[in-house]
């Protein structure tokens, strides 16, 4: 596949946009074409948030992702909204701590990960998004961990360097879950 079209979705505050940015940065470091397009609006905080990320060998045309190859869902409304749209042969990774159901689809790969519970158990509150990323990387093989860690160093501002290790820890946790 020359292009991977991803949809990351959840509540505002779950770090959806950051997780998407991390994947876009990793794509850039892997010398791919990338685009990152967020939803935006007055209902950002606490409302739904999503972003479309495309990683491609070719020049990227439309940055929209109406039918994702990959869905990372961190809440039920997002799961219900995007699950039917995932392309056949695609991948769904969802946070089973927050989404009390699973996909009935048989034409896609479905990975459940207890991301939010794992995060609080491991003292990684607020990093369920990174656990999801870890799980996704393991399931998809889109990037190796090293590339994503290098991207993380670009995405975490120097003022928040302390968070870097925790983020890496969370990604590894998801990767090995």
């Amino acid at each position: 596949m020359s292009a991977t079209r991803m949809m990351l979705a959840g509540f505002g505050g779950q770090g959806i946009l950051f997780a998407g940015k991390l994947l876009a940065y990793a794509g850039m470091l892997a010398n791919k074409n990338v685009s990152w397009l967020p939803s935006y609006g007055p209902e950002m905080r606490g409302g739904t948030a999503n972003c479309a990320v495309i990683v491609s060998d070719e020049e990227i045309g439309s940055p929209l992702v109406p039918a994702p190859d990959v869905l990372l869902a961190l809440n039920l409304p997002s799961f219900e909204k995007f699950e039917p749209a995932v392309e056949a042969g695609g991948l769904i990774v969802f946070d089973s701590s927050l989404i009390p159901q699973t996909s009935q689809r048989t034409d896609v790969t479905v990975c459940a990960v207890n991301a939010t519970s794992m995060a609080s158990d491991e003292g990684l509150n607020g990093l369920a998004n990174m656990i999801m990323i870890g799980k996704f990387l393991r399931a998809s093989g889109l990037f190796d961990l090293d590339t994503v860690f290098r991207a993380l160093e670009k995405c975490v501002p120097p003022s928040k360097a302390a968070l870097l290790e925790k983020n890496k820890q969370a990604i590894s946790l998801g990767y090995n879950a």
Binding site: A24, N33, V34, W36, L37, Y40
Partner: peptide, 10 residues
């Protein structure tokens, strides 16, 4: 437009 302003690319 709103999309071009909001989107990130390298």
């Amino acid at each position: 437009d709103g999309a071009l302003g909001q989107m990130m690319e390298p």
